[in-house]
């Protein structure tokens, strides 16, 4: 299992992380070892086996369509890094 530098960059971009060039080789090595571990899975015959997304074979409960939440904007925005006029602020987004 080998990860190209470009691939690593792309993963970091998708995850919105930045890889420090100094740490890249160690990180690449660690990731490759973990992915190498994953290759052991090839030993399992999973032909016709459904993926198990959840350990219990339960089905989704449904919630009645009622409004149960009240306005807690002040409490929520008290812990926000940047707000104005009730809005969360981010650097200008261009569509």
């Amino acid at each position: 299992m080998s990860l190209g530098a470009e691939q690593l960059e792309r993963l970091a971009a998708l995850a919105r992380l930045r890889i420090d060039p100094g740490e890249a080789p160690a990180l690449k090595d660690a990731l490759e070892r973990i992915l190498g571990l994953a290759e052991e899975l090839a030993a399992a015959d999973t032909t016709g086996i459904d993926p198990l997304a959840n350990p219990l074979d339960a089905v989704q409960p449904l919630r009645a369509d009622t409004v149960t939440e009240s306005n807690r904007r002040d409490a929520f925005q008290a812990i926000a890094p940047a707000v104005e006029d009730g809005l969360y602020l981010v650097p200008r987004v261009v569509e």
Partner: peptide, 23 residues
């Protein structure tokens, strides 16, 4: 619907910003 698909917040149009945004 009266409430959101995954939470009990109201879906009314035109409310003041973030007053219908639950945790």
């Amino acid at each position: 619907t009266r409430s959101k698909i995954f939470s009990g917040s109201a879906t009314t149009f035109g409310a003041a910003p973030n007053t219908q945004a639950s945790a």
